[in-house]
């Protein structure tokens, strides 16, 4: 990492790049910048999986309270994203994919982002408690703390297993949704947790394969950087293979019907096909793609469709069953 870039990202005063950042800081961010701080794309997936947990619960929640629960989950996700951007502002500044984020671009001050994130996190947990129960609020708090302290601050810069363990943070929302409706936890939300937990590595490592130069420059030991592209391709295949039995388990345990079974089999086999394509991508001796990682890009896009479609199938199956 360039010392000058790191310095300008952390403390803008006194460096040429920092002077430009300071002008941006004086102007301040727009409302859109503050929304960007919440990582809206990640939030959409978190909200969808949380809503799925809420909708497959056997006890219907009052619609007004259900909306409040969804907003609380969204706020918790956004708060985690804002605190993550605050902590990672130095590496975000040197990664092409993240250099235009509001903090490294100088449009929002680091302190402002941190205060915003902490405030939103507290608000989301209190709101969840008010709208549902202490269990759901406690799990929401746990997921925020896990994402910030375990993933962002501890694992991300230390181990290539960062997103395997840290992925648990993103797997909590179905449990939160279920707990908000029922006040308890049972097998189905735990299976949904496992589904997202095992989905996260192939999803992130597909991205890491075609963004590995960025991660390498920033010194983040993502799997392709730490263990190489070839090992990463095989790990993607292994985790995708794990997904097949896990995705079918709700039907096997009598918690979902045939519609869900058909969807889970079709979607998981297709995911496996994409993962095989990633392994079989034309590559050099070290496993680096000779096709600009076209299969990895396709697998990444499909992984998003996979999770939305599978959780959607589970909800539809529940409602028509």
């Amino acid at each position: 990492m360039s010392d000058a870039v790191r310095q300008s990202a952390v403390d803008p005063v006194g460096t040429p790049a920092g002077e430009a950042l300071l002008d941006q800081a004086l102007l301040g961010g727009t409302a859109r910048d503050w929304v960007a701080l919440l990582k809206p794309r990640v939030m959409s997936l978190v909200v969808f999986s949380g809503a799925a947990g809420l909708l497959v619960a056997p006890v219907p929640l009052n619609p007004v309270l259900a909306v409040a629960v969804i907003i609380s989950i969204a706020a918790g996700s956004g708060a985690s994203g804002a605190i993550n951007m605050w902590y990672d502002r130095d590496i975000d500044a040197i990664m092409r994919r993240t250099a235009r984020r509001p903090i490294p671009a100088g449009r929002i001050s680091p302190d402002g982002a941190l205060i915003f994130g902490i405030g939103l996190a507290l608000l989301s947990v209190v709101m969840m408690w008010f709208a549902s129960n202490l269990l759901a609020a406690g799990i929401l708090a746990l997921s925020i703390l896990f994402y910030v302290f375990i993933y962002t601050m501890w694992l991300k810069r230390r181990t290539p297993q960062n997103i395997v363990i840290g992925g648990a943070a993103g797997a909590f929302p179905p449990i939160i949704g279920w707990a908000a409706a029922t006040g308890s936890i049972s097998a189905l939300p735990l299976l949904m947790f496992a589904l997202i937990f095992f989905w996260t590595p192939p999803h992130f490592w597909s991205l890491a394969l075609f963004a590995s130069e960025d991660y390498e420059r920033a010194g983040v030991p993502m799997m392709p950087v730490a263990k190489g592209a070839r090992r990463t391709r095989w790990e993607i295949l292994v985790y995708t293979a794990f997904l097949l039995p896990i995705s079918v388990a709700p039907w096997y345990m009598g918690l979902a019907g045939r519609l869900y079974l058909a969807a889970s089999l079709g979607l998981s086999l297709a995911f496996l096909w994409y993962a095989v394509a990633v392994v079989r991508d034309r590559q050099d001796a070290s496993g680096v793609s000779l096709t600009r990682d076209a299969p990895a890009k396709a697998a990444f896009k499909y992984s998003l469709i996979y999770l939305f479609a599978l959780l959607g199938a589970m909800v539809i199956d529940h409602w028509i069953g």
Partner: peptide, 10 residues
């Protein structure tokens, strides 16, 4: 509005 709506619903 949200807090008001939650309070009324509860």
């Amino acid at each position: 509005l949200l807090i008001y709506a939650i309070a009324v619903a509860k």
